[in-house]
Design a protein around this nucleic acid. Structure first.
Lengths: 194, 194
DNA sequence: GTCTATAAGATGATAGAC
DNA sequence: GTCTATCATCTTATAGAC
């Protein structure tokens, strides 16, 4: 890997682990095995490096999500596959985590990729929910945009619960609750109609 | 207010705004209008001050939540009141936010009040959901503990979405989605039974 | 109880040699 | 492109005077 690559990857790791405020240029250099001069030659400073790292992490998240959301199966199955996909739950969401960093939120440049990624995810899920409604898998009375926001929020909040308790179990519990709400155990339609 | 009080309150403010890593003793002293010697006389250091601040913030959250959850109304109404209660959405959750602080999570002493508070909230909500099931307001097929976890996660994740977009609207959207899932627009029971 | 002095190390960067 | 030197400031305290 080239030096700029190693610097970006190191920044991604550290941003995920310690956040923007908790990540120093020195720590990045050491993690990347690069000297100061090298870092400042390739990047203007900490915000510049963070921007490159955040953009790549955001793109990564899209790719990972799309692999599941655009995969095979019914809309309902794809939403479930997304919710149940393997995650490093205790590490938290590398994108969502950044919203708790005041310096990221205060910078339009750094916040934009975070916002756009979560927004993309919501819209992608909204489309799938809508598709599911057309196929009769989700109640037609639901607002797809709202439900999509609930799905993303449950995932993001699941990370919070898991990290608070020190166990991934809380994440899974929240997801199971959401899935049970999405597929209410109603009577078969035929019976209701009868 | 006494000096220790001012120091604790300042720490609470700064922890909420900038997190543990982003809050320096110096910033606390300046915010509280206290000198270094004064701070180190009353507290052993940053972790000690943070512990006092976190404990109080956790207690505050319980009190605020209990005011709504233990209030008047049906179980369903109380859950809705909790979800719709006025919040400083863009500031995030003063308790949940701490889970993204590596130094807080790595310290059992600092993490415990966070964990216990979110756990209390989940159990409190689970009891109310169960009550609602007995009264026929929520589907009996639901697992109250799971749904409670989903409710807490949606709130915590709602803060993430709101902060990412820079607007409280995303929080409200997620909450509306959850409420619509909790109260599915089913046929009246009498009709189903007929 | 509060103040100032002092300190070892980190932070975030610039300058210039190689 | 990478390295070392240097820098002003911040961090997280400790010590001791007042």
């Amino acid at each position: 890997m080239t030096t700029p690559e190693r610097l970006i990857e190191s920044t991604r790791e550290l941003l995920w682990e310690r956040g923007y405020v908790g990540t120093s240029p020195k720590a990045i250099q050491q993690h990347a095995g690069a000297g100061q001069g090298s870092m400042y030659h390739h990047f203007r400073g900490k915000p510049d490096l963070a921007l490159a790292a955040i953009r790549r992490t955001a793109e990564d998240m899209r790719t990972t999500a799309e692999a599941v959301l655009g995969g095979a199966g019914t809309p309902c199955e794809r939403v479930e596959a997304y919710l149940r996909r393997e995650r490093d739950v205790l590490r938290g969401c590398p994108v969502g985590r950044l919203t708790m960093d005041p310096d990221v939120i205060d910078s339009d440049e750094l916040r934009t990729p975070v916002d756009e990624t979560l927004d993309w995810l919501r819209e992608r899920l909204a489309g799938i929910v809508e598709e599911g409604q057309e196929q009769g898998q989700f109640a037609p009375s639901l607002d797809a945009e709202e439900v999509a926001a609930t799905i993303v929020a449950t995932v993001q909040g699941g990370y919070v619960l898991a990290r608070a308790s020190g166990s991934p179990a809380a994440f899974d519990t929240g997801v199971r609750g959401l899935l049970s709400l999405l597929r209410p155990a109603r009577q078969p339609v035929s019976r209701q109609v009868m």
